[in-house]
Write a protein that binds this DNA or RNA. Structure first.
Lengths: 196, 196
DNA sequence: AATTGCATGTAAGGGGTTACATGATTCT
DNA sequence: AGAATCATGTAACCCCTTACATGCAATT
């Protein structure tokens, strides 16, 4: 696992460090609470769970799995082991690799010209809608988290991460508003050319 | 190319739409002007150039390549064709796919707890330094661009893209300052526990 | 003459998504 | 009983980076 550059294993360890979970539950958590800065697919999660179990970093929970009357036999809950916790802590110390983001929207904007103002306006509006929706979703989560701060042991860290998202979304909204105005102006001038 | 989901081809078309370039020059441009929102490697650029040429979307420049006395034989300049321009314009119209960003820093923060405040502080500081450097680099580019707005045909669009970067970096700086303060406070309290 | 940088290219291999297959459980 | 959802898993396939190989050009 040390030679591997994939971070999937650490995501699983990180989540299992808080509570015992099945692969399915992990996927759900990633798709909600981590979705704005991370993603994992089933095709990564399930094989990685097996790999971690084979390496002794996690183990299958043998306790009665039928919690709350559902998922009697099929679900496989995993729990983190001592060496798993150790590996996780070691990884936290390693330097963060430079992130490589890719904004297709910016690519299109960069390559476009005044002949496609209307199309770009649509793209930016779509971008604005998507991120506003995401921001509102997390706004609820944040409010809920602030009410019961003792549920998650590391609530202060989660708030830091959420704060990152909020600042990001604010700047998105800011930029969208500004850019939409510019594009609308371009379109207006094209329809009604200023006399020169 | 239509069935392909890679955007490398469009990046090449987009850049060649402004000026004739070699693969090496394309790489340099991506690594500087597009670096904060896109990346491409030689392993993608060169094969894709051949594919585009085979598909008739770009063509090898047959003119005397020896520009400014250097790169006489080896360099292969490409130029975009009419159908290449058409393909590019068609792509600009297609909806932007949802971007998937991955911030390893946030992952580590999310999984950390108060026992690793010092490590996280380091990570955030590193993040701050990297992005401040990038911001300053693009600040120069922006100033330079605003002085001669007629060099690039689509300068207004480039300014929009740069503005996105600036807003992003501002929010990074904002968040870093705030988060560093919180982490320093945590550390101080650990060294000097408040009486309860 | 040798080193450094420019320039093009390829092969290997890992990372990751997508699609599909399968079965259990719950709901209507 | 049938449909929807939960849950696990696999195989194919693409995207992309990395490492290497090669040769030309310019510099010392």
């Amino acid at each position: 696992m040390a030679a591997n550059r994939s971070k999937t294993g650490y995501v699983l360890l990180g989540l299992l460090n808080e509570e015992n979970l099945t692969g399915y539950e992990i996927k759900k958590i990633v798709d909600t609470r981590l979705s704005f800065f991370w993603s994992e697919s089933f095709g990564q999660i399930y094989p990685e769970l097996k790999r971690l179990a084979a390496g002794g970093l996690i183990a299958v929970c043998e306790e009665p799995v039928s919690v709350e009357g559902k998922n009697s036999k099929q679900s496989i809950k995993y729990q983190i082991t001592a060496s798993g916790r150790y590996e996780l802590q070691e990884w936290l110390k390693t330097p963060v690799e430079k992130e490589t983001v890719r904004y297709e929207l910016l690519l299109k904007l960069y390559f476009s010209n005044s002949s496609s103002s209307a199309t770009m306006l649509e793209h930016v509006r779509e971008f604005e809608i998507n991120h506003r929706r995401q921001q509102q979703l997390f706004g609820k989560f944040e409010a809920q988290l602030k009410q019961n701060l003792d549920v998650h042991s590391n609530h202060s860290r989660i708030l830091m991460v959420l704060s990152f998202g909020q600042k990001l979304w604010e700047s998105y909204a800011d930029w969208c508003g500004q850019t939409i105005a510019l594009l609308e102006q371009e379109i207006a001038e094209q329809e009604n050319p200023p006399n020169e």
